[in-house]
Design a protein around this nucleic acid. Structure first.
Lengths: 116, 116
DNA sequence: CGAATACTTAAGCATGTGGTTAAGTATCGG
DNA sequence: CCGATACTTAACCACATGCTTAAGTATTCG
């Protein structure tokens, strides 16, 4: 159950590229072969394969080769973890703002702005 | 209201580094000066400043200089956008699985596994 | 005013990233 | 079995990234 920061490194790194996000988006609509995935892009097939390798290394995608066709599937597990990391930090921030509001309300019913 | 993919590029790129995530985490607990932010890290101050610049360029952080002190603040707007991108793709995937389940339930009450 | 403080800028460097082309391997279809 | 198909591997390249150290600028304090 232990989480290494390296997991999130790889996940966000993977999502930082528009080609890879497009691949994720495509795979969210259903599994596909390497050449199906490569087809929409104005890019060589090896380039796409490299992106897919990175996606697979990050855990966002799983793949299995049957015959000469490799079929890629989205795995939403790490996607959830990446989402959760953001949600948690945002919650922390929101909670902090709530406390500040409460503090201001308790001390001064209204008027001058306090900086933090 | 138009969104460019470059926004998400920069956001995820910013989050892909452990030092920058630590800075975001720190800032989620409250605004801080550059040297306060740099203090916990075994890294030169210019290195931290570079990270902060990237965070600011991505829109995750805002900063203002008063006197000789620059105070940095978290801005959760782009954080929300990054979270939403993931949530939407995950929703797409989940919905697809639901449809597959429905299809299988409608055709075969139970038994052999279909691949996709 | 002069020294300490808080950055800020600049230059340089090792490594990582995102692409290319060329050539290789392993099925499948006729 | 021979050729088309579907990757796969390898070598290479340009540029981006994540640091470093050194030197510069702008406030503040005694």
């Amino acid at each position: 159950m232990l989480k290494y920061s390296g997991d999130l490194d790889r996940t966000y790194q993977a999502l930082a590229d528009p080609t890879r996000r497009a691949l994720v988006e495509r795979l969210a609509r259903g599994s596909a072969s390497v050449s199906e995935l490569a087809e929409p892009f104005a890019m060589s097939l090896p380039a796409i394969v490299q992106h897919l390798k990175l996606l697979e290394a990050s855990g966002l995608v799983r793949s299995e080769k049957t015959g000469r066709v490799r079929t890629c599937t989205l795995d939403t597990t790490v996607l959830s973890e990446a989402e959760r990391w953001i949600a948690e930090r945002r919650a922390l921030w929101d909670q902090r703002l709530d406390r500040l509001d409460a503090l201001l309300a308790a001390t001064q019913p209204a008027s001058d702005k306090e900086e933090d």
